[in-house]
Structure formats: structure tokens, C-alpha cells
């Protein structure tokens, strides 16, 4: 008799728990970040095993970019000096609070109603109205459109926040966090060969998102990674923050979404509702604009705040 197929997931669970414990125990920022990125990849495989391919793609794509951002931040901050060890009452208090949070989560998970309440039936019933075959896409762009609109606006706000920490004198200049004096020849080769492939896969992820796992966030993250690779290899440079084209690209996604949503008040019967005949084309337009804006926003986040050119020695 074959063993229970769920046993195949056991190494995954063990690796996840071991890595999580190690992440908390390690004392070095850089090792913790590399561990965290690896942890994200294992979580992505777990999502695949659970059948949530959309979430897995997002976790893998955005997790990689997050890891890069954290590494750059850690490199900038340097290792924090070791302060005096915390006092005993403080340690006990932290331990008690952590224990309370864990216990609270455990109680919540263990007392979930059986079967868990879900909206799968409701989504399946209404999905045909959106002309989308991927239920995740239908939820994101039609049933919960407000959440998705706010999500794409948040990325633009993050870029504005990043830009505002640049020095006053550097305003209008281009970001220089990725600049290096002489990029490695292997990196330059990679930056020449990989982006064409990444571009095709990114556009495919966007296009297939209507009917299969994929969508603007995953596609945008992939495109942003390709752009960052080109910038790292100095085959191109990030645009100056005064560039109007960049700003339009950053805001196009939320703007198109907002305008079509407002038009819905007149053309359909509610804010963020789509007229029946135009549902599919409008959703495609929104998703295309959002893919572009997500890519621009993530690439700009990696590029860093505007900075003055470094003085040549």
C-alpha cells in the first residue's frame, strides 16, 4: 500500500518551521534577510501545494523584490551596535506578551467554525457576469474593486514617501542607489539576455491573468525586476524624479481605475460598476494600466530616493 500522499509535504513543513525559528534566532541583519527571502520561496511552494497558484506567484515575485529592498536598506544602515542586554523584568514581559499573542492565535484557529464560512459559491454564481474565467481575478477587479483600487494607490504613495526622504538639494535628480562604478561582466551579460525573456513572461502573466493564475501584480513585479536588472548593470539609468513621463506611468493605473469607476456612476448604476457590454474591455484596460503602474512603482522603490552624483575622487 502506498503511504499517505500528505507525507510528501512533511519536509516542507519541517523546513518552514526550522527556517522560521532560525530567522528569529539569528543575530545578523543580512543573514536574517536572506533567510526571510528563502522562507518566502518555501511559503510560495506551500501555496502551490494548497492549490492557491495566484497567491504563490505573488509571494514568489513580490517576495524577491522585498528581499532586494530589505538587503539594500540593511546595507545602508549597517550593523546595529550591540546595546546592553535587556533587563530581566523586560525579558519576562516580552515573553509573556509573545506567549499571549501565540495563545490568542491558537485559540482563534482552533475555534474556527466548521465548515469555515466562505464566499466560493457566491463568487462562482456571479463570475459569468465578469467574463473572466479566473475567479481570483473576478474578485480582485470586480467584486472587491475598491480594495484593489486602494492597493494600487498605496504603491504610488510608497514611492512619494521614498522620494521625500532624499536630500533637498537632490530634488529633481535621478535615483542612484543602484549605481556601481564597474558592474560585473557576468551581470551585464545577464542583463542583456534575461530582460527579453522576462518581458515576454511578464506580459503573458498579465494577459493570462483573466482566465488562469497570474495578473497585474505578478506581471508588474516581474517587469520591475527586469528593469532593476538593467539599471544594476548600468545598461540604462533610472529616470530623474522630475520626469513627467515617469510620474504619469506611476499614476496611470490608479487614475484609469478611478475614472472608469466614476464613469460607472453614470454608465452603470454604481461607483466601480461596469456597464454590461463593456465589462471585459474595461477590465482589460484597468489591468493593463495597473500592470504598468505596479512595474514603475516597484522599480522606482528599488532605485531609491533621488540623489546628487557622487563626487569623483
Amino acid at each position: 500500500m502506498l503511504p499517505d500522499p500528505r507525507l510528501a509535504d512533511l519536509p516542507l513543513v519541517v523546513a518552514l518551521l526550522a527556517l522560521a525559528l532560525w530567522l528569529i534566532a539569528t543575530r545578523h541583519d543580512r543573514s536574517a534577510i536572506i533567510g526571510f527571502t528563502a522562507y518566502g520561496l518555501i511559503v510560495a511552494i506551500v501555496w502551490v501545494r494548497l492549490g492557491a497558484l495566484d497567491v504563490a506567484l505573488t509571494e514568489a515575485a513580490l517576495g524577491g523584490i522585498m528581499g532586494l529592498l530589505l538587503l539594500m536598506a540593511a546595507a545602508r544602515l549597517g550593523d546595529a551596535p550591540d546595546g546592553p542586554p535587556p533587563t530581566w523584568p523586560l525579558r519576562v514581559l516580552v515573553g509573556l506578551l509573545c506567549g499571549a499573542v501565540t495563545a490568542g492565535l491558537a485559540v482563534l484557529v482552533l475555534t474556527l467554525p466548521e465548515p469555515a464560512p466562505n464566499l466560493v459559491a457566491a463568487v462562482a454564481e456571479q463570475q459569468s457576469a465578469t467574463a473572466l474565467k479566473n475567479p481570483v481575478a473576478a474578485v480582485l477587479v470586480a467584486f472587491r474593486a475598491v480594495d484593489t483600487l486602494l492597493e494600487s494607490a498605496v504603491l504610488a504613495l510608497a514611492v512619494i514617501g521614498l522620494w521625500s526622504v532624499g536630500a533637498d538639494a537632490a530634488w529633481g535628480e535621478r535615483p542612484r542607489a543602484l549605481d556601481s562604478d564597474a558592474p560585473d561582466p557576468a551581470l551585464v551579460l545577464l542583463a542583456r539576455l534575461l530582460p527579453p525573456v522576462g518581458l515576454v513572461v511578464g506580459v503573458h502573466l498579465f494577459w493570462t491573468g483573466a482566465d488562469h493564475p497570474g495578473g497585474p501584480f505578478q506581471a508588474g513585479a516581474l517587469l520591475a525586476a527586469m528593469v532593476a536588472l538593467v539599471w544594476l548593470a548600468r545598461l540604462g539609468a533610472p529616470p530623474p524624479v522630475r520626469s513627467r513621463l515617469t510620474r504619469v506611468g506611476l499614476m496611470l493605473g490608479p487614475l484609469v481605475f478611478l475614472l472608469i469607476g466614476l464613469a460607472g456612476v453614470v454608465a452603470a448604476d454604481a461607483y466601480l460598476a461596469y456597464p454590461e457590454a463593456l465589462t471585459k474591455p474595461l477590465i482589460l484596460l484597468i489591468e493593463a494600466a495597473k500592470t504598468l503602474s505596479v512595474a514603475v512603482a516597484l522599480a522606482l522603490l528599488v532605485a531609491g530616493p533621488p540623489a546628487l552624483p557622487r563626487a569623483r575622487p
Binding site: D184, P185, A186, L187, L189, L190, L193, L194, V197
Partner: peptide, 17 residues
């Protein structure tokens, strides 16, 4: 092929560093 390309390039970069 993609993994060979990326693995080879990052290996070269690490070795260079």
C-alpha cells in the same frame, strides 16, 4: 536553460566578489 544562465551568471559574480 534559464536556471543555467542565471546560476552561471550569479556564480561568476560571487566568485568575482
Amino acid at each position: 536553460l534559464l536556471v543555467i544562465l542565471v546560476g552561471g551568471a550569479t556564480g561568476q559574480m560571487l566568485a568575482g566578489a
